[in-house]
Amino acid sequence: MPIHSSRRALRRLVATAVATGTTALLCAVPAAAAHPADPAPAAAPAHAQAPDTSRFKGVNWADPRDNYADDPVVLSGLSLSDGYATTYTKAHRIIAAFRANLGADTVRLPINPYTVNGPYWHAYRAVIDAATAQGFQVIVSYWEGTGARKDGLIDDTAAFWRMWTTVTRTYTGNHRVYFEPMNEPHGYTPGQWADIAAQWLHTFPAVPRDRIFVSGSGYNDSVVSVCADPRLKGTYLSLHHYGFWGTHTYDEWTADLKQRLGDCAGRTVADEFGSSMTTGLDYDQPADGNNEVAFLQADTDVFRALHMGAVYWPGLRTGDTYSLESLTGSPDAPWLTTNNPSGADRLAWAWGRGKPATESAR
């Protein structure tokens, strides 16, 4: 999730210019990834259709830098200097707060090669372990770096495959961990991105297909093309949707979302969507022309009606006005407080609980 409209709008303008000439590099999978040194378990059967996605009731937990980093990602409330035990203690409390405050059962976490291929991986694993120990489902997603590399392309293909070899070896045996090969692959054409996703499936056949999230094309903004590709059958699809992409009424936002889903809602989890949570907006009241309120009410109504999984951006990210939660307590014993109860209401509504916004909001 970029810092919001200005940055994402700029990258949309350049996406087409950088979308060519890349698949040959990506097909050069290093031997360590294609043929792991450790014996791989037998490939799990691919399901014809991923199960009902509504069981993913989650939030994103993010680095204050928006997860784009040329060094390890360090989630809000954690520290690069902390070892496994301290990271586990902090993560355990924050995950528990997501459940206590919001009723979440899923968390989406970023990774990059700096995190996994270096010394911080030992400590970062504590976040995943603390979440799964509490029964949470964890979606692990690759994010690209910053600067000139922030182009919607895999930064370093050798490091990318090495990273995923390590992550899949570590967590394929944990049924609560899910793998999203890349976040927002907007530097590729839809066809190029489908080729890369298919390459990922071929490289890691031991990962069950119903534990894989294939991002939609572009900024994860449409799942239509990946849904139609038979090579990706049986996987989940991930969609991103944001109100700063335009200015619309409730009905127009509903139509916009459904167009991006096509007939693939049954496989799709919205693993990023959000609105301002620190500016005092009331999402339980009529929109009265407010684009953010209309957007969030439309999205949460559609997710509920279509029984879709919904993972809010972000549950926690320091400095992000969209953050639904903020850190409280001491740094060594963190807890969370909810920034906008009406936003939490809308998220609960998307998850099949709670109450709708007032009738006059429609």
Rank of each mutant, 00 (worst) to 15 (best):
A43Q: 13
P334Q: 08
C264L: 01
T87P: 11
L347H: 01
Y283T: 07
E252F: 06
Y322V: 08
R162T: 09
T23P: 02
T166W: 11
A62S: 13
D71G: 12
Y322H: 14
Y236S: 01
R176W: 12
T172V: 12
G83H: 01
G289V: 06
A44Q: 09
L327R: 06
G147V: 10
R7F: 14
R211D: 01
N117A: 12
P45H: 03
G289K: 09
V269M: 05
T132L: 10
A206D: 11
F98T: 06
D332C: 08
E252D: 14
R108E: 04
G145W: 07
I212K: 00
A350M: 08
T166L: 10
F204T: 00
Y236W: 07
V167D: 03
A133I: 06
A69N: 11
E180A: 07
T279A: 15
Y114Q: 14
S238Q: 05
L324C: 04
A85S: 08
Y236V: 00
R149N: 11
Q134Y: 01
A9N: 15
G274L: 03
V14N: 07
A33V: 04
A62E: 07
R149C: 07
K355Q: 15
K258T: 08
P356K: 11
H175W: 09
A17C: 12
A126H: 01
K258I: 02
R317W: 02
L109D: 03
P341G: 10
A287V: 04
P64W: 14
V302S: 05
Q134N: 09
T170Q: 15
P208D: 02
L239A: 02
R260M: 03
F136K: 10
D155G: 10
D229R: 00
P205E: 01
Y120S: 12
G309S: 10
S323M: 13
